[in-house]
Every structure is written in C-alpha cells, then in structure tokens.
Design a protein around this nucleic acid. Sequence first.
DNA 1: CATGAATGAGCCTTCATTCAT
DNA 2: TATGAATGAAGGCTCATTCAT
Lengths: 205, 205, 205, 205
Amino acid sequence: MLSVHAVQDPIKHQAILNASIEVFAESGFGGADVQVIADRADVGKGTVYRYFGNKKDLFLATADAGMRRLEASILEAIEDVDDPVDLIRLSAKAYASFFQRNPKFAEILILERAEFRGSIPDTHLVYRAKNRGILEEVIKRGVRDGLFRKVIVREATSAFANLLYGTVVTGCMEGESRRLESTVEYAIDIFLQGILRNQKGEAPR
Amino acid sequence: MLSVHAVQDPIKHQAILNASIEVFAESGFGGADVQVIADRADVGKGTVYRYFGNKKDLFLATADAGMRRLEASILEAIEDVDDPVDLIRLSAKAYASFFQRNPKFAEILILERAEFRGSIPDTHLVYRAKNRGILEEVIKRGVRDGLFRKVIVREATSAFANLLYGTVVTGCMEGESRRLESTVEYAIDIFLQGILRNQKGEAPR
Amino acid sequence: MLSVHAVQDPIKHQAILNASIEVFAESGFGGADVQVIADRADVGKGTVYRYFGNKKDLFLATADAGMRRLEASILEAIEDVDDPVDLIRLSAKAYASFFQRNPKFAEILILERAEFRGSIPDTHLVYRAKNRGILEEVIKRGVRDGLFRKVIVREATSAFANLLYGTVVTGCMEGESRRLESTVEYAIDIFLQGILRNQKGEAPR
Amino acid sequence: MLSVHAVQDPIKHQAILNASIEVFAESGFGGADVQVIADRADVGKGTVYRYFGNKKDLFLATADAGMRRLEASILEAIEDVDDPVDLIRLSAKAYASFFQRNPKFAEILILERAEFRGSIPDTHLVYRAKNRGILEEVIKRGVRDGLFRKVIVREATSAFANLLYGTVVTGCMEGESRRLESTVEYAIDIFLQGILRNQKGEAPR
DNA sequence: CATGAATGAGCCTTCATTCAT
DNA sequence: TATGAATGAAGGCTCATTCAT
C-alpha cells in the first residue's frame, strides 16, 4: 500500500487528492507548491503532510488514485463482454474516454513517467502489468479461435498499450483532449485490421 | 531560432548542450542543477547563461538539438527510398534505432512534454508537424496507388506517430531500451497490415 | 512552585516527568519532540500540556525534579555527620554518586544552563543558593575550629561547587560516567588538602 | 580541518564567524536563525551556507575558532614561564581572563557540550586533550622536583581542568563574568595548596 | 568575453500548541 | 478530564540568476 499514513478523515483525504491532481497537473511536480494544494483542499499544510508524508508520496498517491479510477472505468466497460474484438475495442474506448473526461490524469501519468522513471515502483507500470495479463488472454483466445492471425501475443499487447499511451500523452495537450476518443477509435481500428485474420471491409469506418 | 543569444564559440556551445542532455536526462528538469551542467561542460556557470539565457531555454535548446539529430537520422535512412511500405518501415526503424542508441534523448522528449505541456512552442511538435507532412504524402500516395486501403490519412498518420512515441517513452525505462528496435518493428508490422489493401502473409514476421 | 497547573493524577504527572528526562537527555531541548514524550509516558499530547503548560515549563519541571532528588540524596548521605571534612567529602561523594547513577540528569543540568542561561530563575541556581548556605556554614565552622585555614568562605564554597559541577558536566560524556565517583573523590582530596590547616599525609589516597 | 568549504574571502569568513558567536551565544543553537547571522554579518544567507555548509558545521566552526583563540591566549601568557607553580597559575589566569573578556565564548562552550555531547569530535575536547598533555608534563615535573606531592598526575590534571571549566560555565551567566578572574585565582590557590608539598603560608591571599 | 562568488526568493518540512470531541 | 487531529508559523537549505572583476 502506498499510504502508510493512517487516514483519519476520508473526506479530507479525498479533498487533498483532488487538489493534488489539479495542482500537479497544472504546475508539474517540481512546480507544484504543497501550500497551494493545502489551500485548495481547504486544510492546513501540516494536514497534507499528516496524510501523505511528503510531496513525493503525495504525488505517487495521486497517480495511484488515478490508475485505480482508470482501471475501474475500463473493467466496468468490458463487463459481460466476451468477443475479443469487442473487448479490445471497448477497453480502448473506455481508456480514451477516461482521459478525455479527466485530462488532468493524463498529465499525472506523464509526470510520473518523467519524474520517477523507474526509480520507484511506477504505479502505472504496476497496473499495466496487471491489465496486460487480461489483454494477453484476450488476444491468445482470439488467435486460438482463428479470429486473429498467429501474432506474438506479447508483442501485440505491447503495440496496443503503447498505441493507447502514446495517443493519450500526445493528445491531451493544449486542451485537444476533445478529439481523443475518436483518435483512439481510429487507431484501434487500424490495430484490429492489423491482427484480424480476415479483413472485415474496405477501410476502417 | 531558439537561441537568440549569439554563439561565440561553437565548441563551448556544443559542450554545454552535450552536458545538458546528460544532466537533464539523469535528473529531470527541476532536479537538474545548472552548476552541474557547467561543470560537466567545463565552462563557468555564467557562460551557460551567456549562451542560453536561462534554464528553460537551455532545456528547450537541448530538446531542439535532439530533434534535429533524430530528423537527420530518419532522413538519412529513407534517402533514395521510394516504396511507401519501405518508407514507413525504414523511418520507424530509424526512429527506434535513434532512441535505442540515444536513450537520454528519450528522457528529454518526455521531460519536454511533462514540463512544458503546450505552454511553449513544443519543439517536438514543430518537428512532428514538419515530418508529418512528409508521412502524409507517403500514405496518400499509397492509397492513391491502391497499395493501402482508403484510410483517413490524417488519422493513420497520427496512429503511426503515437505508436512510435508511446513505444519509445514506455520502452526507454529501466534500461530496457535494448529491445526498442524489435518492439517497434513488430508494432509497425501490425500497423502496416492494418492499412495494407492486400494482406501480405499469415502473421507478421 | 513551578507547576501552577493542578495535578490531577500523580501517576501520570510522574510518568511524564520520567519520559521527559529520557527524551530531553537524549535529544536536547530543541531536538526533543513533545509527542515522543507523550508516547513514552503513555498519555496523550494534550495531557502533557494540561499538566505542564508548555515545553519550556515541562523542561524546567523536569530539571526541578532532578534537583530535588539530588538534594535528597545528598542530605540523606550527610545525615548525622558532623565533622566538616566528612561533611564535605560525603556530600561530594553523594553528588557524584547521584549523577553516576543518573547520568541523564547531568544532561538535563547542562541543557538548562545552555538553553535558559539566566533568562529564567535557574532551578539549579536556586538549589545551589540554598545548599551553598549549608556548605558555607560547614566551612565557617572548620575555620573557626582551626581545622581549615582562614580561607574566604564564599570563595572556597564556590571553588568546591564549581569543581563538582565541572567534573560532572565533563565526566558524563561518552558514557564515561562510570569513573565519575572516583574522579570526584580525588579532586575533593586535593580541595581538602588545599584548605586544611595541617596536611594530613603525603599524597591524596 | 573543519572547514572543507573553500574560503574565498577571509573578511567575510570572519564576519560570519563573528556574527555566529553573537547570535549563537544569545539564542542558543536551536534558537539561532541563520538569517539573523547572515544579516549581522552583512552577507546573504546563501553566503553563510557557501562558507560553512550547514548550521551545525557553522556552529562547530564557531566553537573551533573560539578554542583557537583561547589556546593562543594561554600559550602567549605562559611563554618563557618555567616554574610549575607559575605555569599553572598563569595559564589559569589567562583562561579566566579570556572568558571574562569574551563571555560569549563561554556560551559557545556550553552550547557545544549541550547540543553535540560526544556525537561529534568535540572541538573543546580535542583542544583539551592537546593542552592536557602540556599540563601533565608540568605537574609531572613538579612532582619529580619535589615541589608537588606525589599526586596521580592524570587525576590532578582533571581536577584542574574541571575546576576551570566549572567556574567559567557557572560564572559567565547573568553578566557575572566580571568577577571571573578573581574567582578562578582564588580557586587555583586552593588547588595549588592542595598539591604543593610545603604549604606556602597561612591562607591563600 | 568568461567567470564564479554572491544573493535571496522560494519551498519543503517540522512541531509546539490548540481545541473540538 | 483526556485525547490526538489539525494547524500554520518558523526556519533550514537550494539553486536560478546576476554582475563585478
């Protein structure tokens, strides 16, 4: 668990996390001032430190919270879905939709990568590893069923994840996040055409 | 031009840039100490400011230099190449190869995105826009020649760029940059299968 | 009385004082954390403030308690003793023995001198003044009886007190408190030889 | 050497040390504000850190400087002196005179003992060890010459040092330092009478 | 031009103290 | 009465930037 500091008041805990997302996303890690976070969360600066220990752990907890929400969003979107193509398409769509609705989290995502590259159990990587397993199963099944080509599952999974990640990181700049969902959809169409055994039609969409 | 400051000594100018790449890549933007950069470049701290104005501009110039080298690498790789598929494949390979050989630049790339998201004419975006034009021409020609499906050129280009970008950013962590080239190759195979009119074979590679 | 705050529970009061000795002796006044004292005393932080008002007063009360114990130790040791030489020797021995058994108090002693030099009715000085009177009487008597030289009583008393104080403060470092008693004994032998009218023997001890 | 930080300007170096003596003596270690020291030295706060690294090292350097001056004072006073009794008397007098003229240093002395008890190569102890050797030689010679009793040299030296230390620490409070010299003189008379083979007269002074 | 000593704004973090429960 | 969560003033330290030499 990231938060070894006991949580006394879940309301305050959440208020601080919400303020953190805002401030870190706006100012970056180095540029963020813990005092500003405290002010926006309407708590004393000491309280921020009581709950999260230090600036770095606060940031990591913020990223962690974002990843949890993302994961929940995706899992909810693919609940009861069984078809591999639908699974891929819907999870990608949920991924894009999440960051389109929460562009601040895309900033957190990139900041974590930039500030703590590998030096620390990268929250995003932890979640990626976990969800990657699910995706690999889906692709493996698609290949087994003759739906997909005999792709190298691990490589195809990486391509999928990197495509989504690159699109979000690139697309969430300058408030361009509005088109994120459709950009991802088109990219995933190409990806699917790339691994499907029988091409479905002329051109995507 | 980014460096409005007159360059007196190209040797020193380059030494500072080289030191910058190292230090920024190692420590991030906020964590980098201009004194350390000056020391590694074997010049006085004042000289760094003489040549680059301030820390931010130094960073931007560093990123700019990286982009120039990347661009040169790619252009060299596709010189005299005419076939759209080859053009796509070889430019992707050159892109991956560059970051595999210069993983520090991948850090610079991500730092620029993280620290200066949109607030500043993003060097990377400038180059991307420029090279995107070239790529769009290639895809447009592939479509016209019946080699590719009737994809939406702009979307396909984005997918290609985001796929490369995501792979590099993700792949250059933890010293995993070794496999970067092959990961990109596989991903581009899927991408190509995704836009080719006639699938070339069973599975990529 | 130092503690104007009414004492509700003598057990807690004492527990806090005991914890204070430990923590102040270990960490100094500035370095001590009231929370740590509360934890060691097994009471809430608020209770510490209830009983002692503030950190400074807590420290002063701690020093006060030490002085009381020291005084009791010495008075007990010289009870029923009448000979001036024995009185001097035994009180010095009791002084040394007390700090050898309670080296933490030597730290408190030095901290009080260091942190509150004169700004505050120095507990140690209060006790010193009181006990100094007793000692002056003893020396005055020794002089009157022809046992001691015609020393200036006030100066001799000061020399005695400063000798003891200096030895304890110097000797309680580095866990060297073990030899404290014998060091004081030897020093007092020299002191006694210095004020005795007729030297008793060749060399002390 | 304590000061690993290169000294660029001896004037500033000294100005900071002078300000340090004042501020530490007035406010204690924890109570001292480096900004105040910088202000009194008429330099920027950063300059203080440039020259002394951190607050603790600044304090230690301050104590070190005091010890050097004390040592120089004493050595100057006993230059060309040969008689053991004179050596003892004059060095004690110089010791007292130094602290009477520089009562702030007495505060530094006690602060060092209080804050850094043994945790750090105590500057005072280092000097004491060095000068103790000289004193031991003097007493040894006095004993050999039949001038002093057959005292245990080490114990007598400790008694002497502790007597001086205790007197200074006790006597420099509340601006009582005026009487320091005479108090020490009287105490040393008793000490000398205590170790002399043949008592010189009735009573000291 | 080049330098690096000097500066001080800025920010993280601690902890004495308070007060609602 | 006892508690300990909350607070924010205070201060150590860093480092981008400047400017006298």
